[in-house]
């Protein structure tokens, strides 16, 4: 497992048919599609209204395992929401090669 890392900028992109790259500051994490689905599920859980409220009233930080527990990332609430938006973009926006 890689070291715990505090993150700054977040970017998620599809790099091949079934591989995605999550860029968190200087760290690059490769995700397969099932790993991306698992990450989406985790992030959605942490960004539900009740959980988010608990987080804000608590430490304001979230630890997330990624890529089948290969990586552990520490995010604050704005970063967590940023990550959720990045993931939703992948799931909901039309792919330029398809349109």
């Amino acid at each position: 497992m890689n070291k715990v890392q505090e993150v700054q900028e977040i970017r998620l992109e599809a790099i091949t048919f079934c591989k995605y790259r999550l860029q968190i500051a200087n760290k690059s994490i490769l995700l397969s599609f099932p790993q991306l689905l698992a990450l989406r599920n985790q992030v959605n859980k942490h960004t539900s209204h009740e959980v988010l409220e608990q987080t804000i009233n608590g430490s304001n930080m979230i630890l997330l395992f990624m890529a089948d527990r290969e990586h552990l990332v520490l995010l604050d609430v704005p970063q967590l929401i940023g990550l959720q938006e990045e993931i939703e973009t992948i799931f909901y926006l039309a792919h330029p090669t398809f349109v």
């Binding site: 599809a14 079934c18 599609f33 689905l37 992948i90 398809f98």
Partner: peptide, 12 residues
């Protein structure tokens, strides 16, 4: 058609 359409047919 979204970026993940080739991986999943179900809507998220």
């Amino acid at each position: 058609l979204t970026a993940v359409r080739k991986q999943m047919s179900i809507h998220p």
